[in-house]
Computed example of a mutant assay.
Amino acid sequence: MNKGWNHELKRNLCFEDRYAKKVKIAVIQMKVDRDVDKNITVAEDFIRKSVYDGADMVVLPEMFCCPYETSNFPIYAELEGGDIYNRLSSIASRFGIYLVAGSVPEIDKFCRVYNTSYIFDRSGTKIGKHRKMHLFDIDVEGGQYFKESDTLTPGDSICVFNTEFGKMGLCICYDFRFVELSRIMVDEGANIIIVPAAFNMTTGPAHWENLFKMRAVDNQVYTIGAAPARDYDSSYTSYGNSIVVSPWGEVVNKMNEEEGYFIVDLDLNYIDKIRKELPLLKQRRHDIYTISNK
Rank of each mutant, 00 (worst) to 15 (best):
N6E: 07
K10E: 07
E16F: 09
D17C: 07
K21R: 10
K22M: 08
I25K: 01
I28W: 03
M30L: 14
D37I: 11
K38S: 12
N39T: 06
I40S: 06
T41S: 15
E44W: 08
E44C: 06
D45Q: 15
P61R: 00
M63G: 04
C65N: 10
C65G: 05
C66M: 09
E69H: 07
T70Q: 08
T70C: 08
N72P: 04
F73A: 09
F73Q: 09
I75W: 05
Y76S: 00
A77N: 02
G82L: 02
D83A: 08
S90N: 15
I91N: 07
A92C: 03
L99C: 04
G102K: 00
G102Y: 00
G102V: 02
S103T: 06
S103F: 01
S103W: 00
V104H: 04
I107Y: 11
K109C: 08
C111Q: 13
R112N: 15
V113A: 04
T116C: 09
T116W: 05
Y118W: 15
T125E: 15
M133A: 08
I138T: 13
V140L: 12
V140N: 10
F146A: 05
S149W: 04
G155W: 02
C159I: 05
C159G: 05
F161G: 07
N162D: 15
F165I: 05
L170D: 02
L170E: 01
F176P: 02
R177V: 10
V179A: 12
E180H: 12
L181V: 12
S182A: 15
R183P: 08
M185H: 07
M185T: 09
G189C: 03
G189F: 06
P196L: 01
A197T: 09
A198F: 09
A198C: 13
T202S: 09
T203G: 06
G204S: 01
G204I: 04
H207F: 11
E209N: 07
E209L: 12
N210K: 10
F212A: 03
K213G: 05
A216M: 02
A216F: 03
A216S: 12
V217Y: 11
D218V: 07
N219Y: 04
V221S: 01
T223S: 06
A229S: 06
Y232W: 06
D233A: 07
S234M: 06
S235P: 00
Y236T: 04
T237I: 14
T237L: 05
S238H: 04
G240Q: 01
N241S: 11
P247V: 00
N253E: 14
N253K: 13
K254G: 08
K254C: 10
E258M: 09
Y261K: 14
F262P: 11
F262Q: 00
R275K: 13
K276M: 13
K276H: 14
E277C: 12
L278C: 13
L278Q: 15
L278P: 09
P279I: 00
L280Q: 14
L281P: 12
L281S: 14
R284F: 14
Y289V: 14
T290N: 12
S292Q: 13
N293C: 08
